[in-house]
Amino acid sequence: MRHDYIDRYARLDSPVHRLPAPLKLALALALVISTVVVPFSAFLYFVACALFLFSVILLARLPISFVAIRLLTLEPLAAGVAILAVMQPDGLFVLIRILVKTNLCLLTMVLLANTTPFAGILDVLRSLRVPPLLITVLALMYRYVFLLIDQSERMTRARKSRTFVPRRGSRWKSAAGIVGQLFVRSTERAERIYAAMTARGWR
C-alpha cells in the first residue's frame, strides 16, 4: 500500500506547479503573516484573499473536494481554539474572526504543500541557510511518515480481521496496544536508520 494523501497532487503539471518553489514559499509566508496581522475590520482584504486562494485551486487543477477534505481534517485544531473564545464577551465575533483567519492560513499551507514537492521546499530552506540538522530532521520526517501510516494501517487491519465481537472497551485497549507497538517499532527503525547513515559516512 502506498500513502501519498499528504501531498498527493504535489507532482501535477499546472501553471502553479511550474512556478519556482522559492516564489511560492515566499508568497505563502507573506500571505499567512498578513492574514494574521491585518485587522479584521479590513474585511475586503479577507474576501480578496479567499478569492485569490480559490483561483489558485482552479489554476492548479486541484480537486475542490480534496482541498475541502484536507481543510476539514485540520479543522478540529482551529475549532478547538475558536470555541474557547466563545466564552469571552463579544465571543461570537471573536469566533468568526479566528475561524476566518485560521482557515485562510491553513488553506494557504494546504495549497503550498500540494503544488510544491517537499524536496523543493527543503531546497529553498537549504539555500536560506536553515541549520542542516533541522533540514535533516524535516527530510527524515517526510520520508518516514508514510511508512508509519502504512504500518499503523496494517496493524489496524490485522486487529480487525481477528475481532469477532466488537466491543468499545476492547477496541480502545487494542488501539493503545497499536500505539505502543508503533512506538517500539519506530525506535528500533530509528536505530537501524542511524546505522545505515553511519555506514555511509554520517558523523
Partner: peptide, 21 residues
C-alpha cells in the same frame, strides 16, 4: 570513517537505508 567508505553495507530492509526524500 575510511572503513565506512571502503566497506559498503547493504541493509536487509531497503526502507531503513533509503532515508532521503
Amino acid at each position: 570513517h575510511e572503513v565506512h567508505r571502503m566497506v559498503g553495507l547493504l541493509f536487509q530492509d531497503p526502507d531503513d537505508q533509503l532515508f532521503c526524500p
